Structures are given as C-alpha cells and as structure tokens.
Amino acid sequence: MSWTGRSASVLVAAAMVMSAAACTAGSGSGGEESASCVNRYTYQDRSYRDVANVNFTLGKKLGAATKPPCEDTGGQDKDEDPVTTETAYEVDGISPKVAIAIGDTPKTAMLFAAYSGSELPPEVQKLIDGS
C-alpha cells in the first residue's frame, strides 16, 4: 500500500474513533454521567438509563416513555433527531420510580433504571446479581 493509502486509512480510523467518542458518557456535576448519546428515557419526570444483560419479568403496560434527542452536535441539526416515544412497562417486584422496561413490544423491552448519581439502585443490583 502506498504512503497516501496508509495515511488515508489512518485518517478514516481516527475519524471513526472521534465520532464514537462523541457519544460516550462523561462525568457531569455530582458524579452523574452527562452524556448526550447515552441510551436514556424519561417517564413521569424521572430519567432512566439502560441496564444491559439483566433478566427481569415484565409487568403491566405503564404508558409512553420519551427519548430525548442526542445532543452530540452542540445544538446543531436539532431538526434531524426528533424526540421519540416507546412503551414503558413495569418490572415485577420493582417500583417504577426505580426501574422500568422500555420497548416497542414486550419481547423487545429492555431494563432502564433511575440512577442515583453513578450508582445503580439496590433493587436493580439484586436483579443483576441474580442473573
């Protein structure tokens, strides 16, 4: 491969890393993550972030959860990333104030928790430990 080809490959790789880094979590005030692209929703004025690889039992349908737009462009292109909504469900044995499941259908629902700072709620941690 020529020097020009290698340089172009390095630039493309660097651009990919930078765009991925734009959507990673950073530390905000109070120890809370303040990333713009974190998979998060709001439901009844509470914010929830996704929790991966957790076994849970879905409860009844609660209503609509709202996903705010990703703000990784510094306020530019707001028209391109509209607010979306999906269905929120109860998680058996856990208050909706602590955790909910969100998805288009019960089969696709994922667990979302209301964090206190950077700590998972103890009820959610118990689910993880039991998984």
Rank of each mutant, 00 (worst) to 15 (best):
S2Q: 10
W3C: 05
G5L: 04
G5H: 05
R6G: 04
A8N: 07
A8I: 05
S9I: 06
S9Y: 06
V10G: 00
L11A: 04
V12P: 00
V12S: 00
A15W: 02
A15N: 06
M18Y: 03
S19V: 07
A20P: 01
A21H: 08
C23I: 03
C23D: 05
C23F: 02
C23R: 10
T24K: 08
G26C: 11
G26Y: 07
G28R: 10
G28W: 07
G30R: 10
G30H: 13
G30Q: 12
G30T: 12
E32L: 10
S34F: 11
A35M: 14
A35P: 10
S36E: 15
S36R: 08
C37F: 13
V38F: 05
N39F: 12
Y41C: 11
T42F: 11
D45N: 15
Y48V: 06
R49I: 06
R49K: 13
R49H: 12
D50K: 11
A52V: 14
A52E: 15
F56C: 00
G59I: 01
K60M: 01
K61T: 06
L62W: 00
G63S: 03
G63W: 03
A64L: 14
A64M: 10
A65V: 03
T66Y: 06
T66L: 07
K67M: 12
P68S: 07
P68A: 07
C70M: 09
C70D: 15
C70G: 06
C70R: 08
E71S: 07
D72L: 06
D72T: 04
D72V: 02
G75W: 05
K78N: 10
K78E: 13
D79L: 15
D81W: 15
P82M: 14
V83N: 07
V83D: 09
V83P: 05
V83I: 08
V83E: 15
V83K: 12
T85P: 08
T87L: 09
T87E: 12
Y89M: 04
Y89C: 05
E90C: 01
E90D: 06
D92Q: 13
D92N: 09
D92G: 02
D92P: 01
I94Y: 00
K97L: 02
K97C: 00
A99M: 04
I100Q: 01
A101P: 06
I102H: 04
D104G: 15
D104Q: 14
T105I: 09
T105N: 12
P106E: 11
P106Y: 08
P106V: 07
P106K: 09
K107C: 10
K107E: 15
T108V: 09
L111G: 09
F112L: 15
F112D: 09
A114W: 02
Y115H: 10
Y115V: 03
Y115A: 04
S116N: 15
S116P: 07
S118A: 13
S118E: 12
E119L: 09
P121Q: 04
P122D: 09
P122S: 04
P122W: 02
E123C: 02
E123G: 01
E123W: 00
Q125G: 01
K126F: 01
I128Q: 11
D129C: 04
S131I: 04
S131E: 07
